[in-house]
Design a protein around this nucleic acid. Structure first.
Length: 423
RNA sequence: GGAGAGGUGGCCGAGUGGUCGAAGGCGCACGCUUGGAAAGCGUGUGUACGCCAAAAGCGUACCGAGGGUUCGAAUCCCUCUCUCUCCGCCA
């Protein structure tokens, strides 16, 4: 949620930057500002009204105390008019704020000025590409066939027990999952993150805090009986730890990491996009989250980018980094780097991480502030990134590292898997 | 799941209808005191919104959340939520 004060003071600039995101609802912005004017006016009248009513109530108290019953009665009668006005005004205020809030939630985050214009993924800016695409032998298989051949992931069994998009990992496949999780977590700890194990369900307030609600309602599962949401990413519980908090200057940056299962309905996806491990309803991911001083958040974004790069490098996977264009940028993000690994048989780049700076878009909604060096309370910036999401990493590892003898495990992982080959 | 007790400021804790944004204590900040420190003494110490160029100051709201009664609510009533205790069930 954008700050009203920002919109009021930087209307032109906001409109200009939002255009990068293809957001052209200038009318919405103006309506928000008009509603805020109305809200302020109403609030002012209400405050004045209440002030007088409070003064009268005090007088009545004094009258009773000093035995001036008649005066008290007279004064009481006078208050009824004030009561009525107060009630009316607070109803107007309530309705205005509600409408204002609803509209404000419909305006996306302002993109960073350096975000490239564009509508689709074609327009994303290639930042760097690292590693070389492997040369495979003619009979090389896609990962879903490899999974079957070596009996390490069972999609059919998942369909039987649960449904499509919920595979079983088995034997060395299961061990590989565990190895990757531990590896990613250890790297995060080395980089100074605190490890958390979050709840896998969150309440409505938390889903709202990080912006899953109302923007992406259909993407989450919902347990209606208890009004809980299985998390689509650990970002939700980990960031919401700080909802409604006032941090000290010295607490920043907060660096948290968490492994969790992630649950996504992925409504509307179909076909080869979802084949094998490409898109699942339940998957594993290690997430890193930082809460940072506004002046330092873009340095932190780069730091996180380096962290994710090093993971992919160590896994010996060819990868590229894209800076998302305005049209591809998420609703809540000001700047995002996407990381894609090359999956050699599918001959496709697969997104495995997304590292974003949300600036104060989430913290404004969450009321996450910190006391700055001058003792002023300010909204902090939040950032997060996957480090990393497992399924597509596994897909690329299987495809790229296949040999006639089996699938080779990258050196960095052998300490964790305790085997060098899947055969 | 059943029964009961509670949620007050950074923390502890008083407050059962009026001058309570809230006693007292701890903590913290500043000052005095001291050779220095401790102790002691004094002063101050929440958040949001609004008025004001700004500071000072003032107004309004906030005692788990929401609603209600009342001229007036931390205090009374209702609903929800969370915590604790006992019972039941249970990894």
């Amino acid at each position: 949620m954008l700050q009203l004060s920002y919109l009021r003071e930087n209307r032109e600039k906001a409109i200009e930057l939002l255009a990068i995101k293809n957001f052209t609802r200038t009318d919405l912005i103006d309506k928000v500002i008009r509603l805020d004017d109305k809200r302020r006016e109403t609030q002012k009248s209400l405050d004045e009204n209440l002030s007088q009513a409070n003064a009268m109530a005090k007088e009545i108290g004094m009258f009773f105390k000093t035995g001036k019953i008649e005066e008290a009665k007279l004064m009481k009668e006078k208050t009824t008019a004030f009561k009525k006005v107060s009630k009316e005004l607070s109803e107007v205020l309530d309705q205005t704020s509600r409408e204002l809030n609803k509209l404000l939630l419909e305006i996306p985050n302002i993109p960073h000025p350096s975000v490239p214009k564009g509508n689709t993924e074609e327009d994303n800016e290639l930042i760097e590409e690292e590693g070389s695409k492997p040369e495979l032998f003619a009979s090389a298989l896609p990962h879903w066939d490899l999974a079957k051949k070596y009996d390490i992931i069972d999609f059919d069994l998942g369909s039987k027990v649960t449904g499509a998009g919920f595979p079983f990992y088995k034997g060395k496949g299961a061990k590989l999952q565990r190895a990757l999780i531990n590896y990613f977590l250890d790297k995060a700890l080395e980089a100074g993150y605190i490890e958390y194990q979050p709840p896998l369900f969150v309440n409505e307030a938390s889903a709202r805090g990080t912006g899953q609600l109302p923007d992406k309602e259909g993407q989450m599962y919902h347990i209606t009986e208890d009004n809980l949401y299985p998390i689509p990413t650990a970002e939700v519980p980990i960031t919401n730890i700080y909802r409604d908090q006032l941090l000290g200057f010295e607490d920043l940056p907060v660096k948290n990491a968490a492994y969790s299962n992630c649950f996504r309905r992925e409504a509307g996806s179909y076909g080869k996009e979802v084949r094998g491990l490409n898109r699942l309803h339940q998957f594993d991911k290690v997430e890193i989250v930082q809460i940072q001083h506004p002046e330092k958040s873009y340095d932190t974004l780069e730091e996180m980018r380096k962290h994710v790069s090093s993971l992919l490098r160590d896994l010996e996977l060819p990868f590229r980094i894209l800076k998302l264009c305005g049209g591809d940028l998420g609703f809540t993000s000001a700047m995002t780097y996407d990381f894609e690994v090359y999956s050699a048989v599918q001959k496709k780049w697969l997104e495995v991480s997304s590292v974003s700076n949300f600036e104060n878009f989430q913290t404004n909604r969450m009321k996450l502030r910190f006391k700055d060096e001058n003792g002023k309370n300010r909204l902090a910036h939040t950032l997060n990134g996957s480090a990393l999401a497992l399924p597509r990493i596994v897909a690329a590892l299987l495809e790229n590292n296949q040999t006639e003898k089996g699938i080779r495990i990258p050196k960095a992982l052998i300490d964790y898997t305790k085997f060098e080959i899947i055969d």
